[in-house]
């Protein structure tokens, strides 16, 4: 009897506690439409001892605009995404190294595909049976799409995409996000196109390994271009975060 009753006693106060919190929520929200930041503020204190670092509470706050008195480090009321951009508080040299790595990846990507193209162009003479397939313009199309997407992504102002710097024109943020979407769609389209070319042109035709290398080179070109864009994005956005932490 003692062992069966003692687990019950801690469970019942916890249930009562949860019910009280739910009623508080239902009572507060219609009453405080004017100042929802104050109504949400004490609720953090009730629920957990470390309130401002709760990521699931972000969409509740992001629906209310013009709250400027809150500390911006933990949650930003103007933030749109539930998961924010990855914040790297790296040193100053990380930006330099990231830019160098991005440039190296960019050159490596293009040289990988150019290697396949040059190899295909020089495969005519020595082979006694003529080679069954060549690198044609179809193989160049995914790489060109990826290059266009890369330049679109790189040339976008990062602060505008985030909308953090308080630009007056809110349509600029919208347009920057549209351009970013176009850039990523171009890069993803290039990657998908290269995989399509690899499968349809090289693998399904059962060429030997010497010729399927053209398709694999195409895919690795697009993968490396995407990696380069990601590395460049992280490297150039880490510095602003670094400065941001210094100013706070």
């Amino acid at each position: 009897m003692q062992t069966s009753s003692s687990p019950r006693t801690p469970t019942t106060p916890i249930e009562i506690h949860v019910e009280i919190e739910v009623r508080r929520d239902a009572d507060d929200e219609p009453a405080d439409h004017q100042r929802p930041d104050i109504s949400h503020g004490p609720q953090f204190g009730r629920q957990s001892p470390t309130p401002p670092s709760l990521p699931p509470q972000l969409p509740l706050i992001s629906t209310n605009s013009s709250i400027m008195s809150l500390p911006r480090s933990s949650y930003d009321p103007r933030r749109v995404c539930l998961n924010p951009f990855p914040e790297f508080t790296l040193g100053k040299h990380r930006r330099t190294i990231g830019v160098y790595i991005a440039g190296a990846l960019f050159a490596l990507a293009n040289w990988t595909f150019l290697d396949a193209a040059i190899l295909s162009a020089h495969a005519k003479k020595p082979l006694d049976p003529p080679p069954p397939v060549h690198v044609t313009f179809v193989d160049w199309v995914p790489g060109i799409c990826s290059l266009l997407g890369f330049f679109v992504i790189v040339l976008i102002d990062k602060d505008r995409v985030r909308g953090e710097e308080g630009f007056g024109d809110s349509r600029a943020v919208w347009r920057a996000r549209l351009f970013l979407f176009i850039g990523f769609a171009l890069m993803a389209g290039g990657l998908a196109g290269s995989i399509t070319v690899l499968i349809l042109k090289y693998i399904l035709e059962d060429y030997s390994e010497q010729f399927t290398y053209y398709g694999y080179a195409n895919v690795s070109q697009n993968v490396a271009l995407m990696l380069s864009a990601v590395v460049l994005w992280i490297a150039t956005s880490s510095a602003s975060e670094y400065e941001y932490n210094l100013t706070l």
Binding site: V99, Y100, A104, L108, D115, I118
Partner: peptide, 21 residues
């Protein structure tokens, strides 16, 4: 910096590509 590292990688990649073909 981006262009510099591109050129350096090009310098290493060009002989490899030429030797490959």
């Amino acid at each position: 910096r981006f262009i510099t590292s591109m050129i350096v990688v090009t310098g290493f990649a060009l002989p490899i590509v030429l030797a490959h073909s």
